[in-house]
Design a protein around this nucleic acid. Structure first.
Lengths: 143, 143
DNA sequence: ATCCTAATGATATCTAGTATCAAATAGCGT
DNA sequence: ACGCTATTTGATACTAGATATCATTAGGAT
């Protein structure tokens, strides 16, 4: 899911209408880039109702255009699925920025653990919380 | 945190009073065993107010007596922290049972990944979703 | 251009969780 | 055992995040 038009094509392919609302949401997605709450998205789209913001986010999520990030406290953020692929998250607890990463070693270790426990693995989430490079400069005095 | 009385001792050690309410909550915790929502806990304790159920769960969580499990959909469940230690979760998407596990290999890989990305890691959560041994027998026909 | 269905927005509602505050009570000193 | 005081509790109201309802709007096939 690279280009802004891909999302629209994806809508069409799946039998959903390309409405001005969905185009507007899509535009904002590609402008925001970072993780956003639905409130933020809704604020960025004054003409669009809250319910529709939620509906559209859910639709885009179902279509794999955006992915949900669960924060430590249970609150949700969303962002463009930069890769449609499987990935994990660095979540900066200072500024909330979420960075995706892929790590084959971790995935291997996870798969081995699941096999060893006779667990039929369908999905897994790995979220790392801490201070990212985005904020570490400011925090050079801690610990 | 093995015995039901340990939780009460833990309360006392931390300067919290051992009230009948907290004892009742503690009893239910040890009876429920599996992961529960606060509503379920509240239902199991008719005499105890909703607000107190939430308060007590939070307190027990802060004391490490129970741990919070974030489900895929963002909803929260709680269960006895079988180890006070760092651990991860197998979450059975059939029956909702959560099993804890410890895996040094995964933790190592996570730490390496964080170091490589110049990310000051404070915490991480790893949740595996799939069919556990609790349910795999019933599902022997799938895939 | 017309028509039908999907999508939208306003609103009400729901759920999870927190704040408030008066009443109850744990547990201390005596 | 008794009383005192700070902690805890329950009822209630409230907030935030999200969904249901439903009349209106608009996409897009014809």
């Amino acid at each position: 899911m690279r280009n802004a038009t891909d999302a629209l094509a994806c809508l069409q392919e799946n039998g959903y209408r390309i409405t001005t609302t969905r185009q507007a949401v899509n535009d904002v997605l590609y402008r925001l880039k970072g993780p956003f709450t639905i409130e933020e998205l809704s604020d960025a789209l004054p003409g669009i109702g809250r319910a529709t913001a939620f509906r559209t986010v859910r639709l885009f999520q179902d279509l794999g255009i955006i992915c949900r990030v669960n924060l430590e406290d249970g609150s949700a953020r969303y962002q463009l699925a930069s890769t449609g692929e499987h990935h994990h998250h660095f979540i900066c607890t200072e500024c909330g920025v979420v960075t995706e990463f892929i790590d084959a070693h971790i995935d291997q270790a996870v798969n081995r653990q699941a096999q060893g426990a006779n667990f039929e693995l369908n999905a897994h989430t790995i979220d790392l919380y801490g201070i990212g490079s985005c904020c570490s400069k400011k925090c050079s005095t801690n610990s």
